[in-house]
Design a protein around this nucleic acid. Structure first.
Length: 988
RNA sequence: GAACCCAUAGCUCAGUUGGUUAGAGCGCUACAUUGACAUUGUAGAGGUCAGAAGUUCGAAUCUUCUUGGGUUCACCA
């Protein structure tokens, strides 16, 4: 006999409970084994938390992710597995840097923060922001109740991950998969950086299509929405078999395009991609400012026809000198007007057309990207390499494969399951269209590309790595270095150099005559560390070559997060001279927990992250990163819109937790949702589930008041009454379903089923009966323990709070075993369950409304109830078994005690009770019989016809085998169904 | 242009390989209320499962088409 407070107030319990979990150490599987709550030889379950970006705070999408993953984790832990859910955050390179830039402009009055602050000071701001953001995120994750093993927390940009990144980069470079290529890339003028194809968001906008000729004599009209780029045209592409084919191969000199003296050599080339039905049927080729045109340029080059490439737009978004003196320095818009003006004045413009165009926009910087030719780092996804060791189905160790093939094999051959299945199609169609991955970014925040350029190599291509940890400097190198007065450290023998703005640093290295990777690492962090490129800037007077220094490129953030499943499991620090393989081999966590079992994330990052993890992991390890991918939907507001600040429709998880508790917030993100389907969330839903949490609390409160002596480990007790049997049997069959739903990740179904059991069956029915029947201590104890365990993965706080209230502060529901289903425990005789159980409720309802009606009548007419009433109903057979009804009547009796009924009202109640009897299954049984008989009558003639059909030799011999088999299958199915129906009839 | 998803009660959504009388939550209506819980209880109303055709003994479920909404990718001469 214990008593809980009257209402559950989440705010009073949640922080305390989370703290107790953390202090217990049970989020850490090692502690669980050490403390004996998990068997040392138990199976392991591991999952990484998709690391949130350190760009701010968590939103509802993160909350959904945390809720689902925590539920998965807690379930696995309660199954007794060694369970690891590994936390971390993502530095989110571009996103974070541009966010900080924006904040500095907005809040601190900078206009160009990076320039104004300089590298060190700016990076300090970024790091401070990232730290703060990280702390917020961790705090929020804890508020949600996430059972993450914080002792293993990682960051995509910390030292261990950086070393892993450098190793994998080098491996890929050595395999020839990473290369430096000059090609057209997406350039954000605003962000002064490249963007990968996937980072573009296409935005529809109105545009004008201009039809024109380069000059009066030019035979072919072309069309474009970007006239200013036409100053850099080097070819016109026509269909090889089309109307202009006679021109193919000609080079037409076109003078004075756009301005006097701007002459172009236009090669007429044939290309299959040209569609004569579109535009003018010919295509002006601007290799420098269009990806498609660049490909044509490359194709021509491969055929030995160098059509040339003219870059007319610079990285600053302004026209270059190559566009002509009148255009140089103009913005693209100004250049466009000027060029159109020119075309008009020369009467070259044939037509203008209003069209809608979708423009590639940088997701991070929000400006329309400019395709520009640049030298960048790429990962070649088509090049074959030797995969030394492979555990992937269909790929032998030592096989020659490309990254694309690896990514395909991992999913196609069943090593990775993707749920819901339809995303498999999305995945493959993405891979089919995958181009080489541009991995370099011209920003400061991120993993610096671990490659250095030899400035004395004119080609700018001398990329070599630090092969050894420690490099001893020769006298020659030291002399060489001293020649440069701007702080170069020349590493001649390995063709590397380090430049530091801090001369003292360089001098220190020169003094000690050797340098280590750590020194360079340190330089990364604390001093300016530049790669440098030689540019064509000459000062003719002094005849001195000048060098322009450029900050080193950093890696696309997905390069490091692509390694997340294994980089997080690496042991502390990499030892000197150790290879990645050796490092992994001695990392216990990697041995224990990789591949992970589950990856749970939003479908919006299937390409960015999921695909890249598959790429990086299959390449590096020859294994898959995870066995199953589960995609949840995106959280939208109640009108189905994306949550965004500008719409002001953001529901903040912390607000929800504060108002309704973490359990309600979590459940609202799981109940009524299905995998991969977007979910609409409203505050009302959270509120409703807060009510449920309170209900659970009060159910427990009531049950405890009726339990004599609590027992944590109580076995299933004996059922004494029909009601006992019913409620226990419902529980046992729900346990069976529970596991089957949990194993197929049907969390919505599970929670609805549990809610139905807890609220509708247990609270509304069984507990009412228990009040009357009494003496149910053991059954109540057993049921209470069981539902708390079943609910725990979903509602960890309220269940753990109740558990501790009952069994004491030192007990942890967190590591209890979830009840398993056992066939032998099934108590109920099948038909009696169906016959009686559902009707308890309906009878109660009828009686209840009778009470109401009688009461109203009494009020109206002043009529008293009969004292015979109770006895009358007690004689009724249906009611004999149903003590609840008896009780209800007893209530009526006592309620009406002082007055009396007349005949009329007794018959009125009789009619009502007859109605109740209708509900009680007696009549239902007949109806059910009738229904089944009807269905049998429906199937039987079909069966006979089908059998006749199949015994007909003419049909069997002449029809195709597949058809005959299909007919046989249908017959079998129908027979099976008939058997089931007849079985049901038998029971009735 | 292509692929995918969605259309089921007033709203938000479930509905597992086709098979009972299509379900839940919220909302609504009526009633109850000293009780573990008003963050409550009981009951009720409300659905030609978007439309059409087909396959089938049987279709919300499978096929095709149509309509409306959405997402993603691509193209944009």
């Amino acid at each position: 006999m214990k008593e809980l407070p009257k209402a559950y107030e989440p705010q009073k319990y949640e922080d305390k409970i989370y703290k107790s979990w953390e202090e217990s150490g049970f989020f850490n599987p090692d502690v669980c084994v050490r403390e004996g709550v998990t068997d040392a030889d138990a199976e392991s379950f591991s999952m990484v938390l998709p690391p949130p970006n350190v760009t701010g705070t968590l939103h509802m999408g993160h909350a959904a992710m945390l809720a689902i993953e925590d539920t998965m984790t807690r379930y696995q832990r309660m199954l007794g597995k060694k369970t690891l859910w590994l936390p971390g955050t993502d530095h989110a390179a571009v996103a974070t840097e541009s966010k900080v830039e924006g904040l500095l402009i907005k809040n601190e009055g900078f206009t160009k923060p990076k320039e104004e602050l300089g590298r060190d000071a700016f990076m300090e701001k970024v790091h401070a922001f990232a730290r703060e953001s990280h702390d917020t995120i961790v705090g929020q994750a804890k508020k949600m109740g996430s059972s993450l093993d914080w002792s293993r927390e990682a960051f995509t940009l910390d030292e261990v991950r950086n070393k892993a990144v450098r190793q994998v980069f080098k491996k890929m470079y050595d395999d020839g998969l990473i290369y430096r290529g000059h090609r057209v890339i997406n350039w954000s003028v605003k962000g002064q950086s490249t963007c990968s194809d996937d980072e573009l968001v296409h935005v529809e906008r109105p545009a004008k299509m201009y039809y024109f000729k380069y000059n009066k004599d030019f035979p072919i009209t072309i069309a474009t929405t970007r006239p200013e780029t036409k100053l850099g045209d080097t070819a016109v592409a026509v269909h090889p078999e089309g109307k202009y084919k006679e021109y193919i191969g000609q080079v037409l000199e076109v003078e004075n395009v756009g301005q006097k003296g701007h002459n172009l050599k236009i090669h007429i080339i044939g290309d299959d991609h040209v569609d004569e039905t579109l535009g003018t049927g010919a295509l002006g080729v601007t290799p420098a400012h269009s990806m498609v045109d660049f490909e044509m340029y490359q194709n021509q080059k491969a055929l030995g026809n160098d059509i040339g490439l003219i870059q007319v737009i610079g990285e600053d978004g302004l026209m270059t000198a190559r566009s002509g003196s009148e255009y140089e320095g103009l913005s693209v818009e100004e250049a466009r007007s000027k060029f159109i003006e020119y075309l008009n004045s020369e009467n070259l413009l044939e037509k203008e057309e209003e069209i809608v165009q979708s423009a590639g926009t940088s997701d991070r910087f929000k400006d329309v990207v400019e395709p520009l030719p640049k030298t960048q780092w790429f990962v070649d996804v088509n090049k074959k390499f030797t995969l030394e060791k492979s555990q992937i189905k269909g790929i032998e160790s030592g096989a020659e494969v490309s990254l694309k093939e690896l990514m395909q094999a991992a999913v196609r051959n069943g090593d990775i399951d993707i749920l819901p299945e339809r995303f498999v199609k999305t995945y493959f169609s993405w891979i089919d269209n995958l181009r080489d991955w541009c991995i370099s970014r011209q920003i400061w925040y991120g993993h610096q590309i671990p490659a250095y350029i030899d400035i004395r190599n004119k080609e700018n291509e001398g990329v070599i790595f630090f092969e050894e940890n420690k490099i001893v400097l020769t006298e020659e190198q030291i002399d060489e270095t001293r020649k440069f007065d701007f702080g170069f450290l020349m590493l001649d023998n390995i063709k590397n150099f380090v430049h530091s703005a801090k001369f003292s640093q360089i001098n220190f290295w020169l003094e000690k005559k050797w340098i280590t990777i750590e020194d360079v690492q340190e330089a990364f962090q604390s001093v300016h560390f530049f790669t440098c490129k030689k540019v064509d800037v000459f000062d003719n007077d002094k005849d001195v070559t000048k060098y322009h220094f450029q900050d080193p490129d950093t890696l696309d953030t997905w390069f490091s997060s692509g390694m997340w499943t294994f980089s997080t499991l690496l042991d502390g620090d990499m030892k000197d001279g150790e290879s990645l393989e050796e490092w992994l081999a001695r990392s216990q966590d990697f041995q224990d927990f990789h591949p992970t079992q589950m990856l749970e994330t939003g479908y919006d990052i299937i390409f960015f992250w999921v695909a890249r993890m598959i790429l990086m992991t299959t390449y590096t390890l020859g294994t898959v990163p995870f066995d199953t991918v589960y995609f949840h939907g995106l959280v939208r507001d109640e009108k189905g819109r994306k949550m965004s600040k500008s719409l002001g429709n953001i529901l903040n998880p912390l607000d929800m937790i504060g108002k309704y508790g973490a359990d309600a917030t979590r459940l609202s993100l799981m109940i009524g949702t299905s995998p991969g389907q977007d979910m609409k969330l409203s505050e009302e839903k959270v509120e409703g589930l807060r009510n449920f949490a309170n209900k659970l609390w009060n159910i427990s409160r009531f049950m405890l008041m009726n339990i004599d002596k609590v027992n944590k480990d109580i076995e299933i007790p004996e059922a004494k009454t029909l009601a006992d049997k019913w409620i226990l049997d419902e529980l046992l069959s729900d346990i069976k379903e529970y596991h089957s739903y949990m194993n197929s990740y049907n969390f919505s179904q599970v929670s609805e089923m549990l809610r139905d059991y807890t609220w509708n069956k247990l609270a509304d029915w069984y507990l009412e009966i228990a009040k009357v029947e009494g003496n149910k201590s053991e059954i109540l104890n057993y049921i209470l323990n069981t539902i708390l365990k079943l609910w725990h993965p979903f509602m960890p706080f309220v269940t753990e709070s109740i558990w501790k209230e009952i069994y004491g502060e030192n007990e942890f529901l967190l590591v209890e075993r979830v009840p398993s289903y056992n066939e032998d425990n099934q108590l109920w005789v099948e038909n009696s369950k169906e016959e009686v159980a559902p009707n308890f409720k309906k009878l109660q309802g009828v009686i209840n409304s009778l009470i109401t009606k009688i009461r109203n009548l009494r009020a109206e007419k002043g009529i008293a109830p009969s004292k015979k009433l109770k006895a009358y109903y007690k004689e009724n057979k249906v009611l004999e078994e149903n003590t609840h009804i008896v009780n209800a009547l007893a209530r009526l009796e006592s309620f009406e005690k002082t007055e009396s009924f007349d005949e009329e009202h007794i018959s009125f109640i009789e009619a009502g009770v007859e109605c109740a009897i209708d509900f009680s299954g007696v009549v239902d049984k007949e109806a059910e019989k009738e229904r089944i008989e009807k269905e049998i009558a429906h199937i039987k003639p079909y069966l006979m016809a089908q059998e006749k059909k199949l015994s007909n030799a003419g049909f069997v011999d002449n029809a195709p085998e597949a058809v005959v088999n299909a007919e046989k299958e249908k017959l079998r199915e129908a027979k099976e169904k008939l058997e089931i129906l007849e079985g049901q009839l038998q029971k009735l």
